[in-house]
Write a protein that binds this DNA or RNA. Structure first.
Length: 304
DNA sequence: ATGTCCCAGTCTCTGGGA
């Protein structure tokens, strides 16, 4: 089973590139981020023509997460089960200010069970500036991810949770820790937030297979030739529970997909191969889903 | 070296976000 994650930087602008990559890489499940589409605009047909079901959770102009799957999708969860997000496709010309920023109004989480594994596609808030309200919201969002793990799934269950986490686990995941020092994506609270996820019972699938070598990045800024100098960061992660970790046989970051033409995403896909010996999840997902149902309360829509 | 790319609206440019 081949799994992957890719921040596509607009699925509208990148539909053709994603279709070509699916044809070449043939993942069974692809997590995507920054689709920048509403659910109504999600290009389900091209994916279906390529053999994939598309599960999409979007808001329009910004953010947006999705799962493309060849092996079916059931038990879909959006936004941690906390209710609807905003619609940024209507009346969104006014920027979200510091005071009204709420990462839980944004489409940053979608999950589904595919091929006996629960997958979660995440798009962490950027944080903008360490110490800003956006940075504080980013840390709150990571706490919500951990709480969702605590309340709805178990480390004993087969789970893949990942995507664009907008944070680097260690200095080995940054081209120049000194240059990046003091910025978002490398700060200690962000790294502690990632560590809290691992401590719950998750393994970094790429590192488990590819080792600790530095210089293995998944994102490079478009500007200043940073890709060609390999000045980037590894912020696109696949964290997996033990039942999945023991099936890892290979992992790679597809740098080729970061090259043009045409204009590529600023992220490269991260690919992990699992062997086929994964036993069916003994307890089944019914138990886990009943816990989810019990914890999921429709959130009262905000006025206006 | 504030250098690129994406989006929507003010619509062949601008402002906002990454």
């Amino acid at each position: 089973m081949r799994i992957a994650t890719w921040n596509v930087n607009s699925l509208k602008a990148r539909t053709d590139a994603v279709e070509r990559w699916l044809e070449r890489a043939q993942p069974d499940v692809l997590l995507m981020q920054e689709t920048k589409l509403s659910d109504r605009e999600a290009p389900e047909l091209p994916f279906r023509m390529a053999g994939y079901e598309l599960v999409h959770h979007g808001e329009g102009r910004w953010n947006g997460v999705a799962i493309a799957t060849k092996v079916g999708a059931t038990d879909v969860i959006t936004n941690f089960g906390d209710g609807p997000v905003r619609d940024s496709s209507a009346g969104a010309s006014v920027a979200v200010g510091e005071d009204d920023f709420d990462p839980f109004d944004e489409a940053r989480m979608v999950s589904a069970v595919c091929g006996g594994i629960r997958f979660v596609s995440l798009y962490a808030p950027n944080g903008r500036v360490v110490g800003s309200p956006f940075y504080a919201g980013k840390l709150r969002w990571f706490e919500r991810v951990r709480r969702w793990l605590d309340e709805t799934v178990s480390p004993d269950e087969p789970l893949v949770i990942g995507g664009d986490l907008n944070a680097t686990p260690t200095d080995a995941d940054v081209w120049d820790p000194v240059a990046a020092h003091g910025g978002t994506h490398v700060s200690e609270p962000e790294r502690e937030a990632l560590a809290r996820l691992r401590e719950w019972g998750l393994t970094d699938a790429y590192r488990a297979s590819a080792g600790d070598a530095p210089g293995r990045f998944s994102w490079w800024d478009y500007r200043a030739g940073m890709f060609h100098r390999n000045e980037g960061m590894r912020i696109d992660l696949l964290y997996v529970t033990e039942p999945v970790a023991k099936r890892i046989v290979w992992a790679e970051i597809d740098r080729e997909a970061r090259k043009g033409p045409p204009i590529p995403s600023d992220h490269a896909p991260v690919v992990v191969d699992l062997d086929e010996r994964g036993a069916p999840f003994e307890a089944g997902w019914d138990g886990a889903l009943s816990r989810i149902a019990a914890r999921t309360r429709p959130r009262k829509p905000k006025a206006g």
